[in-house]
Simulated assay, not measured.
Amino acid sequence: MPELSETAERSQSNTPLAMIMDDSDIDYQRFQELVASTDSLAILCHDNPDPDTLASALALEAIAKEWEVPTVDIVYGGTVTHQQNRAMINVLDIELTPIDQVSLSDYGLVAFVDHGIPGQNNSAVEEMTPDIIIDHHPTDGLQGQFVDLRPAVGATATLLTRYLEIFSIELEERLATALLFALHRETLDFNRETTSTEHAAACVLHPHADHNIIEELTNSVFTPETISGIGDAIANREVRGSCLVSSLGWIRERDAVPQAADYLLQLEGVSTTIVYGIVDDNVHLSGRTSNSQLHIGNVMEETFDQVGSAGGHHDMAGGQVPLGFIGSVDDGDDVAIDLINQSMMARLFGALEGWTET
């Protein structure tokens, strides 16, 4: 492992990413001191991990292994149902450990990547404080020994690409492929929430990545459950003005929710979509908008954050609330579904109308 005093000399200032990313306020030496001195590191992905959190975790794992940390585990909660996420894990042979098989308190360090608050979109207990947080989502109140929060950047994978540069970690093909695919997915092929840093990070990663694998992952087929969910969202849609809200009802694959929200945003005359579905005892929501005057993340947060967890960016957001906030319901009860839909439609359209009128 290089000496800590050499950190500034390893910044590789001639790369496209280094030339445009302002990381002068990031204490990379503190980060290295923490990681290099531990005997065990748990890297916690957010629940139901997507490519950005998976690739970021993989990059942090590579850094820790370069510094000879004896035990490094990538941990996750929830499930992996999205076909591209499952394909990414399988094709790139990403080893994941379910959080219910470990105790985070047994590790010397716990790092959060692509999320920051314990208990919000992750399965960590709310009382814990992570040691390391690296994230790009706008979040208040983050606590940790090392916190790198940069909401001006479009993907956490961009940040970890810069970490690999800073510490001269070799960009081997598997890792570069994971990070470049994450950039594609997080930005919808550089069409959503993309900043110049994502393009610069892609320039760094492009020569090292396997583009055949990226194409294979991009073309991963829909599962029957996802197709059925999108079909239900189409059938159950309600449109008021340029806003669309739809229900998938009871579902098994929560990833059908954001995919349906993306799909319905293509409907002519619609600029904002919010889709929700019920998984077990929770209502999962995804919002999308192409209306530059509407911040869908703020809409979701103000509507649901008091009863669950919700929020996101100006053009995409998500949330999860307990089913009990609506009332007692039974799985498969059509009357209950009708009541849920009436409540959710009224709440969501009321929130959207409030925002579009201001």
Rank of each mutant, 00 (worst) to 15 (best):
T272A: 07
R252C: 13
G229K: 07
T303C: 09
H295T: 02
N298Y: 01
V270M: 13
E301G: 06
H313D: 07
G249P: 08
A256P: 03
N298P: 00
N236W: 11
N291E: 06
A256E: 10
T289Y: 02
D280W: 09
I274F: 01
R288I: 01
V275F: 10
A256R: 04
I227W: 07
N298Q: 10
I227Q: 13
T226M: 12
G269W: 14
W250T: 09
V279R: 12
A235F: 09
G231M: 11
G297L: 00
N236K: 15
S309W: 13
G269M: 14
L265F: 04
E301R: 11
D255W: 11
L294E: 01
A317I: 04
T223H: 10
N282R: 13
Q259G: 04
D232Q: 13
L294M: 03
G318K: 00
V307Q: 08
G308N: 13
V279Q: 12
I278K: 03
D305W: 04
Y263T: 15
L267I: 12
D305Q: 10
G297P: 00
G318R: 03
V283A: 08
A233M: 06
A235N: 09
A256S: 15
P224V: 13
E225M: 08
M316D: 02
Q259V: 09
G297Q: 00
L264M: 09
L294A: 02
S290T: 15
M300I: 01
G312C: 03
H313M: 07
V245P: 05
E302M: 02
G241K: 13
E225Y: 03
A317S: 12
I234M: 09
S290A: 10
G319A: 10
M300S: 02
G269N: 15
R254S: 13
Q306K: 14
A261S: 08
G297F: 01
E268K: 12
P258E: 05
Y276N: 11
E302I: 00
E302D: 05
D280F: 14
G311V: 06
A260I: 06
I227V: 11
T273F: 00
R288E: 00
H284R: 14
R252F: 11
Q293C: 07
H313W: 10
L294C: 01
R252T: 15
G318Q: 01
S309R: 15
G312Y: 02
N236L: 07
A235L: 12
R237D: 05
T289V: 04
Q293D: 14
G308K: 15
G269P: 12
C243M: 15
S292L: 06
R254L: 12
G277Q: 10
G308I: 14
L244C: 04
P224Q: 11
S309L: 03
S290M: 12
T273E: 00
Q320L: 11
L285S: 04
V283T: 08
Y263N: 09
R237T: 08
D305K: 10
T303H: 03
I234R: 04
G319F: 07
I251H: 14
V245M: 07
I234G: 05
G319K: 08
G269S: 15
G312V: 01
I296F: 00
V257D: 10
A317Y: 02
A317V: 04
M316R: 09
A261K: 01
G308T: 14
V299Y: 03
G311P: 04
T226I: 14
R288Y: 01
D305R: 09
I274P: 01
Q320I: 14
V283H: 03
G318Y: 02
V245F: 08
Q259S: 12
L264V: 06
I230V: 09
